[in-house]
Amino acid sequence: MKKTIKGAEYAYHSLKPYQASWPTVVCLHGFTGTSATFNQSLKTTAKINFLTIDLIGHGNSAVYVHPYRYQMPTLIRDLEDLMKELAIPDYFLLGYSMGGRVALAWALTFPENKLGIMLESASPGLKILPKRIARKKSDRKLALRLEQYGIENFVDFWQELPLFASQKNLAPEIQARVRQERLQQAPFGLAMSLLFMGTGSQASYWTVLKKTDIPILFLAGQLDLKFSQIGLQMAQQAKNFAYQVIPAAGHCIHLEQPEKFQQAVLSWLADQKE
């Protein structure tokens, strides 16, 4: 299904028929992914609506739009308008990696009707300006690589990053599915995401994090030392913050340990009802 928001199409999908009496969780995928990444990890009979969205530049959502549509402030405004179009009054956000950055920025900017935030291997951005500048330069090089050498060269490089090393332990068919998902992306969309929505371009939300009362769950993989540390740092800043490390998982917990991921999500959601 698709909705057009200010001229840009956003593709979305419900993992089960929508029930107005159930709580809704809006799921946002990571860079090079699509909403289909959650299909297996959130297969549950629990009375919860899981609504997945293809972020701009990815999957079946708009790609060839003005670069400003990729900027975080514009994107989260589009997502806010999308939910109004869908007439869903309140909801939880769940985001993986880049999708987690989007979820956090969205909820902290538009806190009304956000029941909680679930972050999987995500961050509030970079605190220090020189680090943001350095990361922006790095993201620009990656975008140029995409434009110069094409999607297959980029995917070959991307999947070999140390961040994804633990995914080598996944079943061959899952690895093939992830690779195919990445190969189906449009180079322009990925390049624009890096340039205008990458960690280097994103504002730091660390100071805003201190002020929010929205409940937050942070999930980190035991093998992902970088984001395990980020989660610990966030725990020292946020008020209503739950931090959980998932054993035998790296950066992409929902693929590497789908049952443990689902259990953590459902358990935290059940706690929010109490």
Rank of each mutant, 00 (worst) to 15 (best):
Q244T: 12
K47D: 11
V102F: 05
T212A: 12
R77T: 14
M1S: 15
D81V: 11
I216A: 04
K168P: 00
N113S: 13
R140H: 15
I5H: 02
T74C: 12
K16S: 15
P89G: 09
K141Q: 15
F38V: 11
R135T: 08
R77I: 08
S138P: 00
E147H: 13
T34F: 00
I56A: 12
G30N: 02
Q229P: 01
D271E: 14
M118S: 10
I214W: 03
G57W: 03
T74I: 09
P111T: 15
K114E: 04
Q229E: 10
I53N: 11
Q236G: 10
Y205S: 09
A107G: 14
K273V: 10
E274P: 00
V245H: 02
N240Q: 13
F50H: 06
E256C: 05
A176Q: 12
W158R: 08
I76N: 06
R145L: 12
I48H: 03
Q19K: 05
A270Q: 04
P17I: 05
G95L: 02
P124A: 03
A176D: 12
K47Y: 04
S267Y: 03
S35G: 04
E147S: 14
L15F: 12
A134M: 06
M83Y: 03
A248G: 10
Q175P: 00
A20S: 08
T32Y: 02
A191I: 00
G221W: 01
I128F: 07
R177L: 07
L163T: 15
E112Q: 14
Q244R: 14
Y12E: 03
A264L: 05
N153Q: 15
E85I: 10
K127S: 06
E160I: 04
S97A: 13
P67L: 12
L94N: 03
R145K: 14
L15M: 10
F227T: 07
K137L: 13
V65W: 00
E120G: 06
F241S: 07
M197K: 08
T199G: 09
K127I: 04
D81I: 09
K137Y: 05
K43S: 11
A105V: 08
L82P: 00
Q40L: 09
I216H: 08
T4A: 06
S123N: 09
G189W: 00
I117R: 08
I133H: 01
Q19I: 08
Q185T: 05
A235P: 03
L75I: 15
L51R: 09
I214F: 00
N39M: 08
K211Y: 01
H58F: 07
F110H: 15
Q167S: 15
L42Y: 02
K43Y: 03
I56C: 12
W106Q: 01
R101K: 13
D224H: 04
E9R: 14
L15S: 10
K239Y: 12
E160S: 15
K3G: 14
G231A: 03
D156C: 07
K226V: 05
G59V: 05
L15E: 11
D81E: 15
L108I: 09
A103W: 02
I76H: 01
T24M: 02
V26F: 02
G150R: 07
G95A: 12
H251S: 07
L55A: 11
P17M: 06
V63Y: 04
T199C: 06
S228E: 13
K260A: 07
D213I: 11
A191W: 01
F157K: 08
W206K: 06
Q19S: 14
S41F: 02
